[in-house]
Amino acid sequence: MFFTKDHEWIKVDGDVATVGISAYAAEQLGDVVFVEVPDLGKVLTVGDSLAVVESVKAASDVYAPVSGEVVEANGDLAAAPETVNADPEGAGWFAKLKIADASQLEGLMDLAAYDAFLASL
């Protein structure tokens, strides 16, 4: 699992990457009440908005950690957005991307680096 400075995580399985937000980000957002996941087939460039999570107070974008095409979206979040708080780094995933350029993974943080990054905030 890799992390971005915007607190997304990405888990790579072959050429498909699952994307979500870290436990830290979920905690910071507070109670998630709505999630908008991307349409299947949508082609995202690294840094594009991949999903939107809404807490009671505000909407926040989730950015694509790598470029790729959306091959699966987590439809369960529509009925159960609170899953993002309950299991952010598991069942609270947003979408799976077919990775367009695996070299983009190289710039991401591993868990130890992300923990160090969080400690520096």
Partner: peptide, 12 residues
């Protein structure tokens, strides 16, 4: 304080 430990939904 925007929220305490319980979070906005529980506080509401």
């Amino acid at each position: 304080p925007v929220q305490y430990k319980d979070g906005v939904l529980t506080e509401h």
